[in-house]
Nucleic acid binder design. Structure first.
Ligand SMILES: NC(=O)c1ccc[n+]([C@@H]2O[C@H](COP(=O)([O-])OP(=O)(O)OC[C@H]3O[C@@H](n4cnc5c(N)ncnc54)[C@H](O)[C@@H]3O)[C@@H](O)[C@H]2O)c1
Ligand SMILES: NC(=O)c1ccc[n+]([C@@H]2O[C@H](COP(=O)([O-])OP(=O)(O)OC[C@H]3O[C@@H](n4cnc5c(N)ncnc54)[C@H](O)[C@@H]3O)[C@@H](O)[C@H]2O)c1
Lengths: 225, 225
DNA sequence: ATCCCTTTGTGAACCGATGCACAAAGTAGC
DNA sequence: GCTACTTTGTGCATCGGTTCACAAAGGGAT
């Protein structure tokens, strides 16, 4: 069953995948500072995880460490990048160019990791035609055409909640299978499509929950200092 | 130790806490549409989860359903809101009023759930003094004073990565124990402090990983349609 | 070549979360 | 009041993920 000649196993746990970008970020920092090799202990420290977990995570990609020494920083950067698919570049479309969409469009942190904002799309005639971050904002009617023409494979949804499902359906219909959703709605999609959501409001609510516990649990020991 | 007379158990699983806001959102929608009661099946559908999971989640708060009928929408909204601490309002400070900070400040979705943006803080003299979303942007030197004065209990970090740890240390020093971090760094904090992070770039990388699998796994069955 | 030291890679125990499946509890109709 | 039907709440098996702890692997010194 696992008779592939590849060193790495084809089934990388989801939890591991979610941490690889973290390791990659730490490694990039080290590479910049001229660090050549790093131990699991140090890299784990930099990424804020347990070192055993880090080693197990990396072991899913293959045996890229040297016992007694650690991991070669450059080599590990390459291996993780390849595994995550960052050696190719990905065309991203942002649909909904309001407050948030604009911030995303202007954000430099994308490009640095192989993502390229290839299209901005909005429904508002006021916005369509504007140039934001060097890109022309196109009309939602052009959605399908633009996605195809630019080879968009990841769509970022930053429309109001009401519009999100409809836009989602349309991009799926033209073959998009990866969506990052900022709208506070549960998108309904076929299970061939990956949706990840970022929901600010949920994060705040989780913080509030814990904050309440801290404050109300004992007897109001808040501003004790 | 758990001798509280309260019906609900004091140890709600983290996974459950993370889903409560989802249920709450679905319930708000139903309340607006005038729905009086809802079955676990329907609510689970609206929230995009398994109904058994939903029932188990709700059972952690107490027995608020009626067998044969379902849950009373209004009542459940109240119970979940209370559990999450949304019956009080929370003063939030946004530190770093750039592209992202501005988008957050202008976002209406906060207020609707008991969160109030109480302060905007930046280091750039160009920005300090501006009025954004009806709020005056204050100088980072005033950080501690503003946090105390406004009773800020949740801080949103939207500064560049380099500045995040320093700001974080300072707000913790004046008693803040809940931080939502948008900067791509691992913050180091005492474990009395809750940090949640939102990292766009990580989300895209996870999508890219799966996208690559879909495309490269079989033999390039991408644009078969 | 041998020994010692460091660090990886992983087996195995553990832990929390998920989902099935069903008894218990309630409603509604007669 | 009794029966039939609906839906909750939860015991239990299972699963994925985390952590510990250690044998195996390699490097460097002598
Ligand atoms: N701004 C934030 O900080 C923030 C935070 C969390 C979540 N969100 C969510 O992100 C989404 C966008 O937020 P925002 O603050 O940028 O809102 P916004 O109103 O500023 O922007 C929405 C944009 O989408 C466009 N739009 C509307 N319908 C469209 C359609 N059918 N097709 C394409 N474009 C369409 C509008 O013209 C507008 O430009 C919302 O769902 C919001 O709830 C925003
Ligand atoms: N814009 C996005 O879409 C986006 C996406 C993901 C992550 N981020 C992250 O969010 C953060 C903010 O992004 P942005 O695009 O708004 O950047 P930005 O440069 O537009 O804004 C940063 C703001 O922080 C202020 N600042 C700098 N040092 C400060 C300090 N010590 N104290 C207070 N304020 C300070 C700056 O004056 C500026 O106004 C960055 O860490 C970025 O990596 C942004």
């Amino acid at each position: 069953m696992k008779s592939t000649s590849q060193p790495r196993d084809r089934g990388i746990p989801e939890a591991t995948v979610a941490r690889l970008p973290l390791y990659l970020r730490a490694l990039h920092g080290m590479a910049e500072r001229g660090v050549a090799t790093v131990s699991s202990e140090d890299l784990a420290g930099a990424a804020g995880v347990n070192s055993a977990k880090l080693r197990k995570d990396l072991s899913h990609l293959g045996s890229y460490g040297t016992r007694g020494v650690g991991y070669d920083v450059e080599y590990l950067v390459y291996q993780i990048s390849r595994e995550l698919g960052l050696t190719q570049d990905w065309a991203v479309a942002i649909v909904g160019v309001g407050n948030l969409g604009r911030a995303l469009a202007n954000y430099g942190g994308f490009v640095s990791r192989g993502f390229r904002v290839a299209a901005l799309i909005d429904a508002d005639p006021e916005v369509v035609g504007d140039t934001i971050a060097g890109l022309n904002v196109e009309h939602i009617d052009e959605l399908e055409a633009v996605v195809k023409r630019r080879g968009v494979s990841i769509v970022v949804l930053a429309t109001p909640a009401e519009a999100a499902q409809a836009v989602c359906d349309r991009v799926i219909a033209v073959g998009v299978t990866s969506i990052l959703n900022f709208a506070p709605v549960v998108l309904s999609v076929p299970d061939t499509v990956d949706v990840r959501k970022v929901d600010l409001s949920i994060e705040l609510q989780i913080l509030a929950f814990h904050e309440q516990r801290k404050a109300g649990g004992p007897l109001m020991a808040v501003d004790s200092q």
